[in-house]
Design a protein around this nucleic acid. Structure first.
Lengths: 345, 345
DNA sequence: AACGATTGCTTAAACGATTAAGCAAGGGGC
DNA sequence: GCCCCTTGCTTAATCGTTTAAGCAATCGTT
């Protein structure tokens, strides 16, 4: 009981050979290194007997590679990120990589901390869901030649690998779906953020309404702070309902916003979709459970997660890889919350 | 651009001293090691200039400690575990530890794999939410003298540290709440599992109904497989509704079961709580959003997560620590889904 | 003036692996 | 019999740190 871990040295001693030979055998380099068959067999057996497990620290120190990836997300307790994390974990494991996850809380400082901690832990590369104002960090990684791929969000002005959603088309699709369903006054709740994916969602929504000249009205757009979601969502919904042309439909730009908004809509006693139709980005059990199932933009989570890992690992294998900039399409799942409007004449 | 990382050696060379001295200075051991003030200042400045970041691999290899904890949970994409993971991550970071999370899918083999991978990665200790049939793994960790603490679930027959819920009292409380609310035929949906926490929940429920002699009826208990939740939950609910004494209230033993069950209850067109009152373990946004807010047993997530980290870290500091076996109480949050039954005479 | 104590630094081993280079013995060809 | 090639192994450096031990030089005491 309580045996210390066996090292190469222990095996070497027991077999009466050098550690080098043991290393060759256990790494399957017996052929190249001309190790005798008998001694190789003996070494292998002793390794099994001693339950030898290589020390990754030593391996990594020597090789300069840890087979570890850093995954930086906003918050692991958010279902969207938790799902992504799970997919990334699984895909990484398939390739013999381990993942270390860090939550940035959409905070640039925390994100810096995480990046530094993970660099010190010698991760081989990063998968990053960028927060606002982290352009500098991305540039730093580029300059230091550290491998990374941006996931779900990217900066159009910085040339990087990324795997993300085509947010413009997704939002456009959501808007058109409501417009075609007969809704005239479609609101949109977004985060107040300069992040490109958020701007794209807003742009897609505005374009779907035909722009300012046609159907879009500035009062219908609410932008809320990350740090004060519940209160600002309430205020925004109040405003949009009290607008000159009150909204009859509402799109939420993220899952969190939708949860917050739907709670308030329940409180107000509004009926979905008769009083207010709803479409949301993201998917979640909560949407299925709602009395009126929520129409949502299904994101290709599996593909996003897997692809980001694959892109990163390929880059680690061959740093000269050409840039991979991948956009995926969201899939609108239409349900009762946005059913075709019955016109009351 | 693309500077290689600076090592102690680089600093030493630039300062014209030995690496040992640099190490002393940067670790604040100048006093004990009698390093001159001037040279210390110079070394520190050079470290800053070169943006020196210590290599954790080397540190860890030398010290035998990685300041990394392994967290094994069933599934990071399950909100309960995602929440726990976030709390553990934060508490670990406060203590300068990094966490590596692994999902076992309630599968003993995957759990073994994770434990081995993490041991090879030299984690200092484990926080484990045990799956069924993993007693052997726990015993293995004990025998190898590897630090760990069980979280949320534990084995009464194995003497270990643990931090968990008092599941008996929680389930008893849920049962009594419904009984006192006038519900006579209370059903219970649990996992078919020998895991102690699940048996305790069932025991608490049965006792609340007064046991078999009094109010409890065996037809009201449904146990479903981890691997086939949706189908078996449906079948179970069908049976409980078709029983000789059909249920008028239902307790779900976990969040996942509740989500699955509520979907079906919606499909059946049953009204909560008039046709069927509901109480569930766990908390989730979905419960708030339901047309009739769901009564739930609020688990002290924050305390569970933090305490488990603290117990583990204390054990790492002083392996002779006495056993910590901590049970916490759940808090029943009563809402409309279990409101006092209006008797129809 | 001689001795021990203190100060300020260096040397070198160690953690556990990988791997280029080297060495000795045996075999084959001429 | 000599040379070279192959076979089968070892030696030793290396990755970046920590830390016990050692070594000069200076200081204070008597």
């Amino acid at each position: 009981m309580n045996k210390k871990k066996a090292s190469l040295k222990d095996i070497a001693q027991k077999a009466g050979v050098s550690t080098a030979l043991v290393s060759y055998v256990l790494n399957g380099k017996e052929k190249e290194s001309r190790v005798g068959e008998e001694i190789a067999a003996r070494v292998r057996q002793i390794a099994i007997d001693l339950n030898y497990q290589p020390n990754y620290l030593a391996k990594s120190l020597r090789s300069g590679r840890t087979r570890t990836l850093g995954l930086i997300i906003a918050d692991i307790s958010n279902p969207f990120f938790a799902n992504i994390a799970r997919i990334v974990e699984d895909e990484a494991k398939k390739n013999d990589y381990t993942v270390i996850i860090g939550s940035s809380d959409e905070d640039a400082d925390k994100s810096w901390d995480l990046i530094n901690v993970l660099i010190n832990r010698q991760v081989d590369g990063f998968i990053i869901v960028s927060s606002e104002h982290t352009e500098e960090q991305i540039q730093y990684l580029k300059n230091r030649n550290i491998a990374f791929v941006l996931l779900d969000r990217y900066f159009p002005d910085i040339d990087t690998d990324y795997v993300a959603l085509d947010n413009y088309q997704a939002a456009y699709q959501a808007g058109m779906h409501l417009v075609e369903g007969g809704y005239q006054h479609v609101g949109f709740v977004a985060y107040r953020s300069q992040l490109f994916h958020m701007r794209e969602r807003i742009r897609g929504y505005v374009d779907a309404l035909g722009g300012s000249e046609a159907g879009y009205c500035a009062e219908w757009l609410t932008e809320v702070e990350f740090t004060n979601v519940d209160l600002e969502v309430r205020a925004g919904i109040d405003l949009m309902l009290a607008a000159e042309k009150p909204i009859d439909a509402l799109i939420f730009a993220t899952y969190r916003l939708a949860i917050s908004g739907l709670k308030y809509i329940n409180e107000l006693g509004l009926n979905v979709p008769d009083d207010l139709a709803i479409v949301s980005f993201g998917q979640a059990e909560a949407f299925d459970l709602y009395y009126c199932p929520i129409t949502y933009l299904q994101q290709p989570m599996e593909a996003l997660g897997k692809t980001s890992v694959d892109v990163l690992i390929n880059k680690l294998k061959d740093p000269q890889q050409e840039r991979k900039q991948i956009l995926m399409e969201a899939n609108l799942i239409a349900r009762n919350s946005s059913k075709i409007k019955v016109l009351v004449d």
